[in-house]
């Protein structure tokens, strides 16, 4: 369970939000909305520990996030706005390295299957730089298939994706929620995820 209590965020000199509290239980989806610059990305970066909160606390399984620099990162998967892919490496290499970072590298076979499911079956050996924006995003999202993290934190996962890919990602989210996973995501699009428990959080300016 992820709990957030009295969180405040200051960027530069601007107070983006304060006294933000919520909690997400297994199987629950939190959709963070709000205008550009309302602090959606900052909130997500705080949730994964890239940004220190100006005030407040984030707890994972009842323990403060700052006190466990190893447990929490191992349980969490963050896909930010940039894809985190190297243009010079192929999709296969990129994903192999990404999984190696979080512990054990996934086997080539498993990565091939994941890429195939994301609709990139024949492009696994192309340098990522040659792919279109949407295909790059699909490659980045293939990481979701390769990890067993229970908490997914996704910043605008649907950007640049075509209709088929959006549906695919939505079904991935549904699967993850059914397996008692937790998801936090930001999006501008209407989300059609059949989530049993859905929370919406709107960040006002």
């Amino acid at each position: 369970m992820l709990e957030v209590a009295n969180l405040a965020c200051i960027r530069g000199e601007r107070l983006l939000f304060k006294e933000l509290s919520f909690s997400i239980r297994p199987g629950e989806l939190l959709v963070v909305g709000g205008a550009n610059g309302s602090g959606k990305t900052s909130l997500l970066r705080m949730l994964c520990g890239l940004l220190l909160p100006a005030a407040g606390e984030i707890r994972w399984q009842g323990r403060s996030m700052g006190s466990m620099r190893d447990v929490y990162p191992a349980a969490m998967m963050y896909i930010g706005h940039p894809n985190g892919l190297k243009d010079e490496l192929t999709g296969l290499e990129n994903l192999r390295f990404a999984t190696a970072l979080s512990g054990a590298p996934a086997s080539r076979e498993r990565i091939r299957r994941a890429l195939a499911r994301m609709g990139l079956g024949e492009r696994e050996l192309l340098p990522t730089g040659w792919l279109s924006q949407g295909q790059k995003r699909r490659t980045a999202l293939a990481r979701l298939l390769l990890s067993d993290c229970s908490l997914w934190i996704l910043d605008e996962p649907f950007t640049a994706l075509d209709k088929a890919a959006v549906e695919l990602v939505q079904s991935l989210l549904e699967e993850h929620l059914r397996d008692d996973g937790l998801v936090v995501l930001t999006t501008h699009q209407d989300l059609e995820v059949a989530a049993p428990r859905l929370q919406r959080l709107h960040l006002a300016q």
């Binding site: 994964c48 520990g49 890239l50 620099r69 190893d70 447990v71 990162p73 191992a74 969490m76 963050y78 930010g80 706005h81 940039p82 894809n83 985190g84 892919l85 190297k86 243009d87 990404a98 970072l101 979080s102 512990g103």
Partner: peptide, 17 residues
């Protein structure tokens, strides 16, 4: 710098090790 631009640096910061 390159890792910073394409977001891989953030992934480095989030590893359990």
């Amino acid at each position: 710098a390159a890792d910073h631009l394409d977001g891989t640096l953030e992934q480095f910061l989030l590893i359990p090790q």
